[in-house]
Amino acid sequence: MTAVLEARDVSVTLGAANARKAVLSNASLALRRGEITAIIGPNGAGKSTLLACLAGLRAPDSGAITLGEVSLTRVSARERGQRIGFLPQVAEVNWDIDVATLVSLGRLPHQGRWGQSAADLTAMADALEATDTAQFASRVVGTLSGGERARALLARVLAGQPEFLLADEPLANLDPRHQFDSLALMRRVTTSGAGVVLVLHDLAHAIRVADRVVMMDSGRIVADGEPATVLTPERIAAVYGVASHAVTLADGSPGLVLSGPC
């Protein structure tokens, strides 16, 4: 598949003038539709900053983000909203709206002057069903648990039917069952032709679900490839400072066990 969403030598520096810190340094990454890419790395590695740049929410200090070989700065906000869905690590909902209304916001970039179409309503219903949130569609978002809210926010992004779904730690507030359900849902999203990019902290999830793993450390991409080639004991020890070994799970899929600090 050809690359569609790409970061080219992207660098970002943050902080006051007398205390500037490079949080991204010459990061290059070509993302393809139809696959799951997991971005991993320790705290402060630059994962969230890279994802924000790819979503068009932060402009890099140098380098470029392109969508279909067009600079993201030249793509209108409406088209960007149609093609790229972003699920932030911390998403605040500051209005007393119900879940159905929240999910409907995901369709705004697609709507014309006459409001919601039949296609909009179908996409919203499909997103509610896929995330197991239809059961509380009429509830106010503020009354939901953390896990329920996380699923409702994912439904909002899915309703937009983006070409690329970028999610920053989407499993953080979910119980184990809904973590696995969400990962299975991400796989179904790729079968429709979309690309999924997940920032993950759980390396076992990364090796299990991802087609490709991008490992970051100190603002740099230090490895990029198939999970088994990136998530080696040597590299995990060097980047995370923990010992690990690969295992094969009961269903035959690959797994990873962390056994403690090196």
Rank of each mutant, 00 (worst) to 15 (best):
S76K: 11
L102N: 00
L128Q: 11
R235P: 04
A119S: 11
I84N: 04
R33D: 02
L185Q: 00
L154N: 05
D9C: 15
A228P: 02
D168Q: 04
P261K: 15
L54C: 07
I221G: 00
V196W: 12
S28D: 03
P88M: 01
V196H: 10
N18V: 06
G193Q: 07
R8E: 06
G147N: 02
G219K: 05
A118D: 15
W95I: 07
G160E: 05
L158W: 07
D96C: 04
N43P: 03
K21A: 15
A250N: 09
D224Y: 04
L185S: 08
R212C: 07
T37G: 03
A210V: 03
S104C: 07
R188P: 00
G225P: 13
E6S: 15
R156A: 10
L31V: 13
L231R: 11
A55T: 04
L158K: 09
E169F: 01
S253H: 15
V209G: 02
L153G: 02
F136T: 06
V140P: 07
V214N: 02
G195H: 10
L200R: 02
A246L: 08
D251G: 14
L105I: 09
A100F: 12
T190A: 04
V157Q: 08
L185I: 05
S104L: 13
E69N: 14
D120T: 10
L166E: 00
R80G: 12
L72V: 14
D202P: 02
V239P: 01
P254M: 06
E163I: 05
A3W: 00
P227I: 11
L198A: 13
N94C: 09
A134N: 10
V242H: 01
I236K: 00
A159G: 14
V4C: 14
A152K: 01
A184P: 01
G85V: 11
H205G: 04
G255F: 12
S145I: 10
T49G: 10
